[in-house]
Structures are given as C-alpha cells and as structure tokens.
C-alpha cells in the first residue's frame, strides 16, 4: 500500500493503517527526536507527541504540494521545537574558550570510520543552541532566516553560530577518531 492510500485510511480512522504508517516512519521520527534531545526516554516521549500531532493533522496534508515525508519532517520538527521552547524560553550558545586545531583533510578521510551511533552521540553532546542549529540547517534544510524565526534569534546570529556549531561538531568528531585510534593502539599493544 503506498503512503497516499495509507494516509487516506488513517484520516478515516483506520487503526491498522495508523499502525502501518507508524511502522513505516517510526524509526525516522525517533531518529529526528534523538538528534534534538540527549536522553532516549525523552526522545521516545517526543516521538509519541510527534505521532499524535501527525495523526491529528493528517487531514491537512496536501499530496499535491509535496511528498508525505517532507511534510512529516516539518510537522515533527515543529513539535520538537515547540516542546523545547516550552521548557526553555530562550536559547543559549556556550562556546568553549579553547578549541583543538582541526585538520579538515584528516577528518574528511577518517569520517567513514565513525559509526552513525557515535555521530549521533557527538551531535547530542553539542550545547543546546548549536545542536538545534545543526539539526535545523543540516537535517531539516531550513534557511538561516527560517532558523532565526524558529529560535528567536537574528538571521546573522544563526549564520555565525552555524559556523561555530560546525567547528564544535568537527572538533567532537576528531576527538572520537582520536579515541578510536587510541583504543586500537592499546588493543595492538
């Protein structure tokens, strides 16, 4: 059954269709949530809220305007951001004083050595504001003007903080690679 039919049945209140839609996209939605919050139970809770919102607003989805997946990502991102904003009424950017030198070339070469789990962990460990900017710009594909609206900051701040966020992420990834190399060396020794 294609997604369009699935959505149609879901709107009619068909539980089986809802279950299938959940099974089809549950993993993707959970991954989105995992990128925004650090704890798995929080991510699970957010995922449930995303699906509750999705099922509630399915009738608003217009297949002619675009693919379901894109619309779903947008709804989920809004739910996640809304939740985060409700808890904290401002976003903060804490940048460390000292950042290690990053070898762009080395990182590019070794990137494939890093598992997705470690990537996820590195993103989760970013300070709140940087994590959100990375998620919104890289994964959700929002422009800096849109991010500015979402986070209540100026577009120029979003742009400049994105640069810093990337630096922090790269530094974190390099750190992970260094750890991995150390571990391997210890194992060989």
């Amino acid at each position: 059954m294609d997604t369009r039919d699935l959505v149609k049945y879901c709107i009619q209140g068909n539980k089986e269709a809802e279950n299938r839609l959940f099974m089809r996209y549950g993993n993707k939605v959970y991954t989105i949530c995992l990128r925004y919050v650090r704890q798995k139970p929080d991510a699970k809770d957010l995922m449930q809220e995303c699906f509750i919102s999705l099922f509630k607003n399915l009738s608003k989805y217009d297949a002619e305007k675009g693919a379901f997946e894109g619309w779903m990502y947008r709804v989920c991102t809004n739910v996640v951001l809304k939740k985060i904003r409700k808890k904290k009424n401002s976003i903060s950017f804490v940048f460390p004083d000292i950042l290690p030198e990053i070898s762009e070339k080395l990182l590019k070469e070794d990137f494939d050595e890093i598992s997705t789990e470690v990537l996820l962990k590195t993103i989760q460990e970013l300070p709140e504001g940087y994590r959100q900017i990375i998620n919104l710009h890289i994964f959700e594909g929002l422009k800096h003007t849109e991010i500015a609206n979402c986070l209540g900051i100026s577009a120029s701040t979003s742009r400049s903080q994105y640069g810093r966020a990337k630096k922090l992420l790269k530094a974190g990834l390099e750190n992970q690679i260094a750890k991995k190399i150390n571990n391997e060396e210890r194992r060989l020794a």
Binding site: G26, K44, F139
Partner: peptide
C-alpha cells in the same frame, strides 16, 4: 560534512522496538 551527515542518518536504524513503541 552536511552531505555525509544527511546520507548517514537517512539510512540509520535506531534499533527502537516499534511494536512496543506503538503499544505505548
């Protein structure tokens, strides 16, 4: 970095027990 991250997470399996999540 952006391209690689998107590519990685597109195929990422979080290992979530979907049946249990559906029940919850």
């Amino acid at each position: 970095l952006k391209e690689k991250l998107v590519e990685r997470f597109d195929a990422f399996d979080s290992g979530l027990d979907l049946d249990q999540a559906w029940q919850e």
